[in-house]
Amino acid sequence: MGNILIVAGKEYRDGWRNRWVLAITAVFALFAFAIAYFGAAASGQVGFTSLATTIVSLASLAVFLIPLIALLLGYDTIVGEENQGTLLLLLSYPISRWQLLTGKLCGQGAILASATFIGFGAAGVAIASFTGQAQATEIWRAFGVFVGSAILLGWVFLALAYLISVMATDKGRAAGVALITWFFFVLIFDLGMLGILVMTSGQDGGDLLAYLLLLNPTDIFRLINLAGFESTRAYVGLLAVADDQLLSPLTLTFALAAWVVVPFSIAVWLFARRKH
């Protein structure tokens, strides 16, 4: 436990030192404000609209932004240390490999969590006070779900980034694979799903398609945040294949958590196996 905390503390301080925390927080807060202000432009007016609408727009944006940021934060965590020679050094210390990776996940996970919480949180408070919704607890619950699931989504892609970092032989390749991973989950996967949907004319296997969405963490995130709002049915598009009854919020949260645990466990396993 001590070792994990030492590594986590170092990674977290690194996040402040190299301005990552600051940059991500600023980006999140800025986008949240911009979306809240210009979000209603389509209906012919600008100005802060309701927090509910803002959450929906924010979720669509976060789906692109958070995975990218998490992958960029984590892709060089092992391969980068390998390049600068410190990995060899760390491995010669009385710390096991799973402790090293876990410590890094905790530290960088905390970076993402604080940036998401502060960035979106500050924007949320400001928007709510502008629109006079600060008292509506329901909205706050939805916003809490949004921030919480956004943090979880960040951890998913952090775990994926570690998997890439453990397998890569050099930093450049790791960066390339990280970008491909991002591209796959935010774009290609949904295009493929759409293709299946069109080919089967949406007739049979409706349930199966819903379960297929669980194979993409960004779709799980969207399901958690969009499906909850009746007024946003129009935005969900592809997600309409998933029935509310079929995938409860709890199931979805578990699925997203599994997306953290499984890639991370594989990364730990591969890292431990590198002795041979």
Binding site: Q84, G85, T86, L88, L89, S92
Partner: peptide
């Protein structure tokens, strides 16, 4: 241990 080239 002091590895061959370590830049820290």
């Amino acid at each position: 241990y002091l590895p061959e080239s370590v830049s820290f």
